[in-house]
Structure formats: structure tokens, C-alpha cells
Amino acid sequence: MATKAVCVLKGDGPVQGIINFEQKESNGPVKVWGSIKGLTEGLHGFHVHEFGDNTAGCTSAGPHFNPLSRKHGGPKDEERHVGDLGNVTADKDGVADVSIEDSVISLSGDHCIIGRTLVVHEKADDLGKGGNEESTKTGNAGSRLACGVIGIAQ
């Protein structure tokens, strides 16, 4: 089992970053940390998408990683996509320092995120509470600013 993974985020604009993942036990939580720069100040949706395909930019990554066919939600919700990591918060300089621990994603097994795409979005994720159909699919997080395929790390 891989215990570490990394993702280099890039987009068409100024947004870029490096996100690290570490899972010490196969059924334990995954620590997610790193930094994203070039964002507007505020909240930005942060999700693992189904495919590791960036051939047409971030759009070819498909929908959120959702092997259990659930509705979109927040990272602490029972009803959520596996890939729903909530929001990252950018400061006035456009930098989001990421520090998350998640017990639904994994670096092995059915919820493995390796080979899938991590995406940072234009807007805040409403965590499935926006009151419309799009909220239950995407959290109304808007366009995909930057993305990268999650790969095994040393």
C-alpha cells in the first residue's frame, strides 16, 4: 500500500500549488496538507474528481469521485461524495494553506484517490446545502481553477 501521495495543481491562470497526502494505516485517516497560491481571497471548493484525465484541462477530470452514488455534502457529513473535501481558505495575498484530515478518502482500496484528479474551484462549496439540484452534485463551487493528478510519492 502506498502511504504517501502528492498532487501538483496547475491551471490556465495564476492558480498553482502542491498538496501532499499521507496515510499511516490502511483504514486510518489521510492527512492532506500543502499550499495553493494565486486564488482570490475567501473560500474555494476542494474536491477529488473521478478521473485522472487532464487532456482537456480540468474539465476532463469528470464529476466528483463518488463510488457510493451519494449526494454532495461537506467533509463531516454522512451523506457526501468520497471526493468531497470541503473548502480551502485563501488569505488576502491569495494563498491557501491547506491542513485537512479526512477519514473517507484513502490511498488504497475502494476509496483510493491515487490516479484521480484534485481540483480547486472558483467559488465556495455550499456543502450540499444550497437548496438546488446543482448543490447536491457540485456544491455550486463554480469553474475549475486548477487541477492535477494525484500520484504515489516516496
Rank of each mutant, 00 (worst) to 15 (best):
2 A>D: 04
5 A>Y: 12
5 A>N: 07
9 L>S: 04
9 L>I: 08
10 K>Q: 10
10 K>Y: 15
10 K>R: 12
11 G>P: 05
11 G>K: 12
12 D>E: 15
12 D>T: 12
12 D>K: 09
12 D>W: 13
12 D>P: 14
13 G>L: 07
15 V>Y: 14
18 I>W: 08
18 I>Q: 13
19 I>E: 00
20 N>T: 06
20 N>A: 10
22 E>Y: 07
24 K>H: 13
24 K>V: 12
27 N>L: 10
28 G>T: 15
29 P>I: 14
29 P>G: 15
29 P>H: 06
30 V>I: 12
31 K>F: 15
32 V>T: 07
33 W>A: 10
33 W>L: 10
36 I>S: 04
37 K>G: 12
38 G>T: 05
39 L>V: 08
39 L>P: 04
40 T>V: 13
40 T>D: 12
41 E>G: 13
42 G>F: 04
43 L>R: 14
43 L>W: 08
43 L>I: 13
44 H>I: 04
44 H>G: 06
45 G>W: 01
45 G>Y: 02
46 F>H: 10
47 H>D: 03
47 H>S: 01
51 F>I: 07
52 G>E: 03
52 G>V: 00
53 D>N: 06
54 N>C: 06
55 T>N: 03
55 T>I: 03
56 A>M: 10
56 A>N: 08
56 A>S: 08
58 C>V: 02
58 C>I: 01
59 T>H: 11
59 T>G: 06
59 T>Q: 13
60 S>N: 06
60 S>V: 01
60 S>K: 02
61 A>Q: 01
61 A>V: 04
61 A>M: 01
63 P>G: 12
63 P>M: 05
63 P>H: 06
65 F>T: 01
65 F>S: 02
65 F>P: 02
67 P>M: 05
68 L>R: 05
69 S>M: 08
70 R>Q: 09
70 R>A: 10
73 G>L: 00
74 G>D: 15
74 G>R: 07
74 G>K: 04
75 P>V: 09
75 P>L: 08
75 P>C: 09
77 D>M: 13
77 D>N: 09
78 E>M: 13
78 E>Q: 08
78 E>W: 06
80 R>F: 03
80 R>A: 06
81 H>Y: 05
82 V>D: 13
82 V>L: 07
82 V>C: 08
83 G>Q: 00
83 G>P: 03
84 D>C: 03
84 D>Q: 03
84 D>V: 02
86 G>N: 04
87 N>H: 07
87 N>C: 10
88 V>E: 05
88 V>G: 07
89 T>V: 10
92 K>P: 14
92 K>S: 13
93 D>I: 10
93 D>A: 09
94 G>V: 09
95 V>R: 10
95 V>I: 06
96 A>H: 04
96 A>G: 05
97 D>T: 14
97 D>R: 13
99 S>V: 07
100 I>P: 04
100 I>W: 14
100 I>F: 14
100 I>Q: 15
101 E>V: 08
102 D>Q: 08
103 S>F: 15
104 V>R: 13
104 V>K: 14
105 I>C: 15
107 L>K: 04
109 G>A: 07
109 G>F: 14
110 D>N: 14
111 H>P: 09
112 C>E: 14
113 I>A: 10
115 G>N: 02
115 G>E: 01
116 R>C: 00
117 T>M: 09
118 L>H: 01
118 L>C: 15
118 L>E: 01
119 V>D: 00
119 V>M: 04
121 H>L: 01
123 K>D: 14
123 K>P: 00
124 A>C: 12
124 A>L: 08
125 D>A: 00
128 G>F: 01
128 G>Q: 03
128 G>N: 04
128 G>D: 03
129 K>C: 10
129 K>Y: 06
129 K>A: 07
129 K>G: 06
130 G>N: 09
130 G>W: 10
131 G>W: 08
132 N>F: 14
133 E>G: 13
136 T>D: 08
138 T>V: 05
139 G>N: 01
139 G>Q: 03
139 G>F: 02
140 N>A: 07
141 A>L: 02
142 G>T: 02
143 S>V: 09
144 R>G: 02
145 L>R: 07
145 L>G: 05
145 L>K: 14
145 L>Y: 12
147 C>T: 01
150 I>S: 02
153 A>T: 07
153 A>P: 15
